[in-house]
Simulated assay, not measured.
Amino acid sequence: MTSILDQEAFMKRSLVTVCILALYRELYASSQEAVDAMKRGQPLPDRTVLVLVQYKAQADAQGNPLKNASGRFLKGDRIGFTVMEKRQGWGAEYPGDLRNGEWEYSAFGTDGRFNANANYTGCFQCHKPHEKQDFVISLAGLMGGGGTTGTGAPDVRISGFSFGPPRLTAAPGQAVMWINNDDSPHQITLTASKARGPVLTKGQSYSHTFAAAGTYDYVCGLHPNMKGQVEVISR
């Protein structure tokens, strides 16, 4: 996929609108069959093309992102496209710890021209943990996520692409609960063990019990710049 991106051919079905950090993103699929498969939680069909269109968020005079009444960023100038395409037999040349099934990735600038300098290894690394979702991170937003509907008071709230509080103290054997208040999905991932919770859509929660004393750093598996810490102290 090194030719100029045919925008009209690919952008047939709008799937998800995502507001992340200072970016506004729209996800499109190449066929209704792909959309239906995603909603059923099934692998996407051969020759599926997914296009993520990225925009800058509108900002005020101080550079702060502007939001609408629902708390979503306002779409600004388009800055590029990221494409993932699935073809039978693709991916065989990649090592097992990197291969994303039969998916390949490409990035394009605002003029639709292929970006040869994009970090494609990063694409494979980011999507690799989501094999159960056919390597499509946004699938959770259509399926309803894998967490549970939160009951009781959470220990950590996920809001505005941050953990609150970012640092928490717990006792050995204590369960810590996170709840996602963002429109965007998130995933609790322990930094040292690489253990991952389910992808959480808005309103869903996840609990993890820390058996031993220690300091546990964690990130969002979908947005690694989001960081938190749980300090488990014997009392």
Score class of each variant (00 low, 15 high):
residue 1 M to K: 08
residue 10 F to T: 11
residue 15 L to A: 07
residue 16 V to A: 10
residue 16 V to S: 05
residue 17 T to E: 04
residue 19 C to S: 06
residue 22 A to Q: 09
residue 30 S to C: 14
residue 31 S to F: 04
residue 38 M to K: 10
residue 41 G to F: 15
residue 42 Q to V: 15
residue 43 P to K: 00
residue 47 R to D: 09
residue 52 L to G: 04
residue 55 Y to V: 13
residue 58 Q to G: 03
residue 67 K to H: 12
residue 67 K to E: 00
residue 67 K to V: 12
residue 72 R to K: 13
residue 75 K to C: 09
residue 78 R to I: 01
residue 79 I to Q: 02
residue 82 T to R: 08
residue 83 V to L: 01
residue 84 M to E: 02
residue 84 M to G: 04
residue 90 W to T: 02
residue 91 G to L: 04
residue 98 L to S: 04
residue 99 R to D: 01
residue 100 N to D: 06
residue 101 G to E: 03
residue 102 E to T: 12
residue 109 G to W: 11
residue 110 T to Y: 00
residue 111 D to S: 05
residue 112 G to I: 08
residue 115 N to L: 08
residue 120 Y to G: 02
residue 122 G to C: 11
residue 124 F to H: 01
residue 130 H to Q: 05
residue 137 I to P: 03
residue 137 I to G: 04
residue 138 S to N: 04
residue 145 G to M: 10
residue 147 G to Q: 03
residue 147 G to A: 04
residue 147 G to L: 03
residue 148 T to H: 03
residue 151 T to S: 09
residue 155 D to Y: 13
residue 158 I to C: 07
residue 159 S to M: 14
residue 160 G to A: 05
residue 165 P to F: 03
residue 167 R to A: 12
residue 169 T to V: 13
residue 172 P to N: 06
residue 174 Q to I: 04
residue 178 W to A: 13
residue 178 W to N: 08
residue 181 N to G: 11
residue 185 P to W: 00
residue 189 T to D: 01
residue 189 T to L: 13
residue 192 A to E: 06
residue 197 G to Y: 07
residue 199 V to F: 11
residue 200 L to S: 04
residue 203 G to F: 10
residue 204 Q to R: 11
residue 204 Q to E: 09
residue 207 S to M: 10
residue 207 S to E: 11
residue 211 A to W: 09
residue 214 G to P: 11
residue 223 H to Q: 04
residue 224 P to T: 04
residue 225 N to D: 00
residue 226 M to Q: 07
residue 227 K to Q: 13
residue 230 V to D: 02
residue 230 V to I: 11
residue 231 E to L: 14
